[in-house]
């Protein structure tokens, strides 16, 4: 039931916006086509401007991922994280979540395939995946467009919140399921 409602929302949300906003504009006597084109012309520059920032970030993350260094990080952290009820199996995905959304997604699917999506590990991975965004990607993309290189407290806040979010996911999953 809930699944159907959610599917309907995801199916219709974008068409509703694409219909609703121009229709509302038309009622308010906006020259919809002309205004659309006028606003849309910045799209190209904006997208291109983030390339150097995104390449810098993704190349570094790619090197880290491919090296197998994650295994060492997990060995280092798992004694601490197991204390809060976070299984060592979920930890690599939790760390990857801050670095690469696609990478974390792949690891989550692997956990689903190995342990099943309805196991504690599968559920915890789902909650950890859904409750945060990829900090490094957000910084590269959003700051790239404004050419910000001095990020001040963004990174400390972002990574600290990722940790809080992972801990919250572990505790909540253990209590709820």
């Amino acid at each position: 039931m809930l699944q159907t409602v959610l599917n309907t929302i995801s199916l219709y949300a974008i068409p509703a916006i694409l219909l609703g906003i121009p229709l509302y504009g038309y009622v308010k006597k906006v020259k919809v086509y002309e205004v659309f084109v006028g606003g849309a012309k910045e799209g190209f520059d904006t997208a291109i401007r983030i390339i150097p920032y995104l390449v810098a970030m993704l190349a570094a993350i790619g090197i880290f991922r491919a090296s197998g260094a994650m295994n060492f990080v997990v060995k280092l952290l798992s004694p601490v994280t197991s204390l809060i009820g976070l299984p060592a199996e979920v930890l690599p995905m939790g760390i990857m979540r801050s670095l690469s959304g696609g990478g974390a997604e792949g690891m989550m699917v692997e956990l689903f395939n190995t342990y099943g999506p309805d196991s504690l590990i599968g559920r915890m991975a789902s909650v950890a995946m859904g409750s945060t965004e990829t900090t490094m990607y957000c910084i590269a993309v959003y700051y790239g467009v404004a050419k910000i290189t001095k990020v001040r407290h963004t990174l400390s806040v972002g990574l600290l919140v990722d940790a809080i979010s992972l801990i919250a996911a572990a505790i909540i999953t253990n209590i709820v399921f």
């Binding site: 906003i21 121009p22 509302y24 799209g43 904006t46 997208a47 983030i50």
Partner: peptide
Amino acid sequence: LIGIMTLWLGIMAIAEKS
């Protein structure tokens, strides 16, 4: 991103103007 960026910036311009 170019395509969706262009699409949503256009829609947003209408939302702003209206």
